[in-house]
Design a protein around this nucleic acid. Structure first.
Lengths: 154, 154
DNA sequence: CGAAATTAATCAGGGCACTGAGTATTTCCA
DNA sequence: TGGAAATACTCAGTGCCCTGATTAATTTCG
C-alpha cells in the first residue's frame, strides 16, 4: 500500500526526459561527442580563451565535471589548454581547427535532432515548454546561492 | 561565430532541470537515499516480489543500472533478493521492514519537495508541465522500439 | 613587506546511465 | 529428447555529476 504514482513526480519526469534526449542524441547527432561536450565547444566558440571554471559556469557543470569533460575534449584534440600568463592558477581554453569543424558539423545535426525531439509539440506548446522548464530550473538553481544581498554591487 | 543559444536546446534544459531536482532532493529529502533508489522502493511497495528486470522497466532503468541500484539498497538492508524457485534465472525482490519504514518516511518528504520544486508554477501550469514533458519523453522513448509490428501478437 | 584569505584546479570517493560481451537457466521445437 | 533460441543477470568499459579535501597561485590588508 501507499505506493505513489511516479508519473506525477517532476523529478522522475526530468530523468526520463534526459534519458529520452540522450537516446536521440546518440542516434541522430553523435556517438563520440556527448551533449555536454558539445555545450563546452559551443561556449568556446562564443567566447574563445575562457578559463575552465567560467566555461563550467556557462554550461552548468561543476568544477570536477568540467575538468573531466575538458580532459576528454583535449584527448580528442578538439581543445587546447594553456596556462594563463597573467594568472598562473588559470588555464585558458581554445578550440583547435578540428574543434571548430566538429562544432559546425554538430550544430547542424543538433538542430535537426531538436526538431524531432520537440516533434510531438506544436509551435506554441514548444514556447510554453521552454518557459515552464526554465522557470522551474532557475528557481531551484536560485536556492543554491541562498538569497542574502543579490549580487553584491561592488 | 555561429555559436548557438543553449537556452533554446531542450536537451540542455532537461539536464539543468535534473540538476535542479537533484539539488532539492539532497537538501529536502535525503542525502543517503537517491531519487532512483526511492523509485525502486516505491515500485516494490506497489508490487512486492518483482524480479530485477521488471523493476527496472517500471522505474525506467536499464539492466546494468538497476543491478547497481539494487545492490546498494541491499547493502543498506532495505531490500532482500532471493532466487525464484520457479525460474532459476530470476531474483525476486522484497522490501525489508526497514525498507518499508524508509519508503514511508521519504514519501512524505518527497511530497513536500515536489511542492517547492513546482512552486514557481500555478496549478494549471503544473498540469501543462506534466503533459508536455511526458509527451516529449514518451515519443522519444517510443523510437527505441522501432515501430514495425507493435508488440508482435504471437 | 608578509601572513591570511581567496581562488583555480586536482584528487578521492560515491552514484547514475548506457552499450557490448559473457554466463547460467529455461523454453521452444525439430 | 536434445540442441538452438531466448531470457535474467553479471561484468568491463565509458561518461556524466556531485561533494569534500588538497595544492598551487594570487590578492588583500595589517
Amino acid at each position: 500500500m501507499a505506493a505513489v504514482d511516479l508519473t506525477t513526480h517532476p523529478g522522475h519526469l526530468a530523468r526520463r526526459l534526459q534519458q529520452a534526449h540522450h537516446l536521440l542524441w546518440n542516434t541522430m547527432v553523435s556517438e563520440e561527442i556527448t551533449s555536454p561536450q558539445f555545450a563546452v565547444l559551443n561556449a568556446l566558440v562564443a567566447e574563445p580563451g575562457l578559463d575552465q571554471r567560467t566555461v563550467g559556469e556557462r554550461v552548468g557543470l561543476d568544477r570536477s565535471t568540467i575538468a573531466e569533460v575538458i580532459g576528454r575534449l583535449i584527448r580528442r584534440g578538439l581543445l587546447d589548454k594553456v596556462r594563463d600568463p597573467q594568472d598562473g592558477r588559470r588555464f585558458l581554453l581554445r578550440l583547435t581547427d578540428d574543434g571548430v569543424r566538429t562544432h559546425r558539423k554538430l550544430t547542424v545535426r543538433t538542430a535537426r535532432m531538436n526538431q524531432v525531439f520537440l516533434g510531438p509539440l506544436g509551435a506554441d506548446e514548444r514556447a510554453v515548454f521552454f518557459d515552464l522548464v526554465r522557470r522551474v530550473a532557475d528557481a531551484a538553481e536560485g536556492l543554491r546561492h541562498p538569497a542574502g544581498a543579490p549580487a553584491d554591487p561592488r
